[in-house]
Structures are given as structure tokens and as C-alpha cells.
């Protein structure tokens, strides 16, 4: 069996061996439901679409994904199992990708379990299912971006709480990179092209164009790049830090 798949399988098994998986899924479903109906006013808007549902995903992921990713490497380092993992016939890259894919697949399960809402919207009206599918894909990609950042930062420390806080902070910056909160801090001293570059890194800008139904290849490539770059960084950090 492919080593990456073996690691993916083990990770997933671990999620479901502890309450982590169930707590995460239940909280995710309860929060998406509450936000969609209470804050997003899905019914009152009178429109058969899922925009109120997807609008809150970046904010939910901001806290839930780091809670999932914080243990990825910090725990391996803390318990010493990283020494076991790295002396098995597995490359660093296979381990990094396997663990990431497991976490991503898991968020995919949580996301897929929101399907009753999709059915509801179809029952109530006649939504554009293409846009909804695209939004699901966009949301899944964004979760992958958050996870890749979290996985990388989880390798920096042995302490899961520190990993969580750093990840939330970095994800927050990425989320709002296109907004004044972040831009005002750099506008004064960075040249304009750099400021524009930072602005274009915003998760929120890329994600909101996807849920509006504007599917631009660049948005998909963007999330793909974020995932790729942070996984490479993850491997580099891990190689430096694994023994300490």
C-alpha cells in the first residue's frame, strides 16, 4: 500500500479513536446551522441560495481548523512518536502529505455532513446548484489552506496551545490581508506593489468571489498554491525541528 495512504488511514483512525472527531463535527454542524439561520437569516431573506451558509465559513474555520491542526505535529513531537514515524520506511514528504490529507479529508467529512441544508434549499426553491457546488469546493479549498498553515505552524512547537494561538493569528492575517486592518499596518512603509501583493493574498477576497458564483481559475490556483507552499514549509520546519 502506498505509504502516504497508510499514514492517512492511521491518522483518520486516530481522529475517530478519540472524541476529537465527534466534538469537531458536532460543533461544526451546530455552529454552521446556528449562524446560517440565526445570523444569516436564511429563511427571512426569501432567496433559495446558500450564501448565508457559506459567508460564515471563513470565520468558523478561523477557530475550528487550528483546533484540528494544532495537534498534527506538536503532539507527535511531544509524545516522541515522531521518532517512531521518522524511522519507519517513510519519507518526510509522505508523512507531511499523509497527515495533511487526513486532516483535510476529515474537514471534508464535516463539510459533507451539511448536505441536509443543500437539500432543504432545493426543497424550498430553485437554487443555482452549480454555484452551490462551486462554493462547497471553494470552502473545502479554503479549509485546506487554513490546515496547511496550521500543519506547518504545528511543527514549530511541541506545545499545542501555542500552535493553536499562532495559527489563529496567522490565519486571521491571511483572512483579512485585503482589508484595512492588515493593510493600514503596512501601507506606510512598504512600496505600493508589495501592498497590492499582500492585499491579493486575502482568503476572504478569493473565497467571496467563489461563493458569488464567479469561478475564476486564479482563485482555485491561489488556494492550491497556499497549500503547496505551506506543506513545503512544513517539511522544512519539521526536518529542522524534529529532534529538538
Amino acid at each position: 500500500m502506498n505509504q502516504t495512504l497508510v499514514i492517512l488511514k492511521r491518522e483518520l483512525r486516530s481522529y475517530f479513536a478519540t472524541p476529537v472527531a465527534y466534538v469537531f463535527i458536532v460543533i461544526f454542524l451546530v455552529l454552521t446551522g446556528a449562524l446560517t439561520f440565526q445570523v444569516g437569516n436564511l429563511y427571512e431573506r426569501g432567496q433559495a441560495d446558500m450564501v448565508p451558509f457559506f459567508t460564515f465559513h471563513p470565520w468558523l474555520y478561523l477557530f475550528l481548523v487550528p483546533a484540528l491542526s494544532m495537534r498534527l505535529w506538536a503532539e507527535e513531537r511531544k509524545t516522541g512518536t515522531i521518532e517512531l514515524l521518522m524511522t519507519l520506511p517513510v519519507t518526510l514528504w509522505q508523512a507531511v502529505v499523509g497527515k495533511f490529507l487526513a486532516a483535510w479529508f476529515f474537514t471534508g467529512i464535516a463539510l459533507a455532513l451539511t448536505f441536509p441544508l443543500w437539500i432543504t434549499v432545493n426543497y424550498l426553491g430553485d437554487p443555482d446548484n452549480g454555484v452551490i457546488l462551486a462554493s462547497y469546493i471553494g470552502s473545502f479549498l479554503m479549509a485546506g489552506g487554513f490546515l496547511a498553515i496550521g500543519a506547518c505552524l504545528s511543527a514549530v512547537t511541541r506545545n499545542q496551545v501555542i500552535a493553536f494561538i499562532i495559527t489563529v493569528t496567522v490565519c486571521f492575517l491571511f483572512l483579512l490581508a485585503g482589508y484595512d486592518v492588515v493593510l493600514s499596518a503596512v501601507q506606510g512603509w512598504l512600496p505600493q506593489p508589495m501592498v497590492d501583493a499582500i492585499a491579493s493574498l486575502s482568503f476572504l477576497t478569493h473565497f467571496s468571489s467563489i461563493i458569488k458564483g464567479v469561478i475564476d481559475l486564479r482563485d482555485l490556483v491561489y488556494f492550491g498554491l497556499v497549500i503547496g507552499i505551506f506543506l513545503v514549509a512544513n517539511a522544512v520546519v519539521l526536518d529542522m525541528k524534529k529532534a529538538s
Binding site: V6, A17, E83
Partner: peptide, 26 residues
């Protein structure tokens, strides 16, 4: 290889852990 302190994945069952090792060892 048995690392010092014999670290194993604590949340896994003994059986599942050995199966994982068997898979990873091909």
C-alpha cells in the same frame, strides 16, 4: 528500531497500532 521510552500512538489500540506498522512495513 525501538526508540528510547518506546513511544507509541497512545490513542490507538494495540491491535490497530500493529496493523499500521504492518502496512507501513509493506
Amino acid at each position: 528500531y525501538l526508540p528510547e521510552g518506546a513511544p507509541n500512538y497512545p490513542e490507538m489500540t494495540c491491535g490497530a497500532f500493529l496493523e499500521f506498522i504492518a502496512d507501513v512495513r509493506g
